[in-house]
Design a protein around this nucleic acid. Structure first.
Length: 322
RNA sequence: GCCGAGGUAGCUCAGUGGUAGAGCGCGGCCCUGAAAAGGCCGGCGUGGGGGGUCCGAUUCCCUCCCUCGGCA
């Protein structure tokens, strides 16, 4: 019995010719960050953040970043790499993340992605179709069309040029209708055709995806507590500072900014803004879970609040070695 | 103790003698260059307990329990 187990263990090591890349996902406030430290140590890994808001400098409390002092022992990448007055998007994330993977693997270490932005994760793993940069001019033109003629008109336009994409997009989802039309107008090719042309990393890397999850009620309680903590740490000052800059469209959508902006403009009491932050964060966590649930490659790690980060990390590492 | 108001979804409340809705909350889902964004779908219920009238009660009557307000 022991011999067999040892044999298959050796075999699995020999078989692993592709470099290992690990993803640690999970809804907001589930405890990814604290587990990542322990997991990185056990795996001899370097951490690549997979979070659309932690890329921004200045969104420290809002995005619950690990303080810089605590990031020193293990290298962390793609945190604090862009100013909040700059736009950031999936494409740029993917480019930078793929570069980091190569660098880390070249050093003989393991890239460990940690974060809750599902789209960023999927784009790193499965690739992104190439449609060139977004064209603000075309976008503006299409928005104007939307304003003047309404979403049904825009949707019918899409239905004519790209029925396949139209079939997948709801007429009310104007953001996606516009994007599909933008791609068609700038490239002359329907987005539904381009979307099939993506190259993933699975051929070159041994990719393992883990998603932390816990009882929903406990998670929601933790989210509420986290928001309360943010206020004790001074989110209000942080947001006031951010609002004095010219925030980019992408940075502006972090949960907490619009809510506290309303308070600053005296449009609502502080308590209402705070409750809105809690609520929006809970909805966000729910959407994250829906996204992750869809990906059948994910290995779920059910945890309870009292589990020690090291124990959780050990469970994950054990799964990897199976 | 007496008088009044009321007990319907997780919460606030509508409504009807033919087994019930609304808002919020909650749940599920979609997603490919804005993703902490954007969009779609779902009522999730022993109608306070018991009894009576009626073909039929959440609705009418009686009783008990509970909550709130007033008087003691």
């Amino acid at each position: 019995m022991k011999g067999i187990r040892l044999k298959s263990f050796r075999k699995s090591i020999v078989k692993k010719t592709k470099p290992l890349v690990v993803f640690l996902a999970g809804p907001t406030a589930v405890g990814k960050t604290r587990v990542s430290e322990a997991a990185a140590r056990l795996l001899n890994a370097e951490i690549i953040s997979c979070d659309s808001m932690q890329v921004y400098t200045g969104l420290d409390i809002l995005s619950s970043k690990l303080p810089p002092a605590l990031r020193k022992k293990i290298p962390h990448y793609l945190i604090d790499c862009v100013s909040p007055d700059k736009e950031y998007d999936v494409s740029r994330y993917r480019r930078e993340a793929v570069r980091k993977i190569k660098e880390i693997c070249a050093r003989g270490r393991v890239p460990l992605f940690v974060g809750g932005t599902g789209l960023y994760m999927s784009v790193v793993i499965d690739g992104l179709f190439n449609a060139g940069k977004p064209d603000e001019k075309v976008r503006a033109k299409l928005s104007k069309l939307l304003n003047d003629k309404g979403n049904e008109f825009l949707y019918h336009y899409l239905k004519r040029v790209d029925p396949e994409a139209a079939g997948k997009i709801h007429p009310h989802d104007t953001k996606r209708v516009i994007r599909a039309l933008e791609v068609f107008e700038t490239t002359g090719t329907p987005i539904s055709v381009l979307q099939k042309q993506r190259k993933g990393l699975a051929r070159f890397y041994d990719i393992r995806i883990f998603c932390l999850n816990m009882d929903r009620e406990v998670l929601y309680r933790r989210i509420n507590e986290r928001v309360e903590r943010m206020f004790r740490q001074g989110v209000l000052n942080e947001v006031v500072r951010l609002l004095s800059l010219r925030l980019s469209k992408t940075a502006y959508q972090a949960i907490g900014i619009r809510e506290l902006e309303r308070y600053c403009k005296r449009e609502c009491p502080l308590e209402e803004a705070k409750e809105a932050m809690k609520h929006n964060t809970r909805l966000y966590a729910k959407r994250q879970l829906t996204w992750f649930r869809k990906d059948k490659r994910i290995q779920w790690v059910e945890i309870s609040e009292n589990d020690k980060p090291l124990q959780i990390a050990k469970r994950i590492v054990k799964e990897i070695n199976v």
